[in-house]
């Protein structure tokens, strides 16, 4: 949806998945920090992320998309090797 909103009749949204345009980084109080030496690349964190903000990069490392991460800390809780620590956001 472009700036200067144009509304469709009947509440039709014709761009699938356009919620990615709304960033959610302002919701975050804590930020995940990863110790990649400890990480075993199991992918459990990505599995349980409610926001789908964790993705695999080219090297197989899991990275956080901080535009959508709300900082809930589920990833740190479920990590089997405790490689993720939640740190307070600096602003």
């Amino acid at each position: 949806m472009k700036k200067g909103l144009k509304f469709n009749i009947g509440g039709i949204i014709d761009e699938p998945g356009n919620s990615v345009e709304t960033k959610k980084d302002g919701w975050r109080v804590h930020k995940p920090e990863v110790d990649y030496d400890k990480c075993t690349k199991c992918g459990v964190c990505a599995m349980f992320c409610p926001d789908g903000a964790i993705f695999k990069d080219k090297n197989g490392n899991y990275k956080w998309d901080l535009d959508y991460c709300k900082g809930c800390g589920i990833c740190a809780q479920v990590c089997p090797v405790k490689a993720i620590i939640m740190k307070e956001e600096e602003k």
Partner: peptide, 25 residues
């Protein structure tokens, strides 16, 4: 775990609470 699809059909940027259980489902 490797056989699971990586493509997401439920996009990021939704307005669920932090730590929302239903959003994971």
């Amino acid at each position: 775990m490797n056989n699971l699809p990586e493509k997401e059909y439920f996009a990021s940027g939704h307005n669920a609470c932090r730590g929302c259980g239903p959003a994971i489902a």
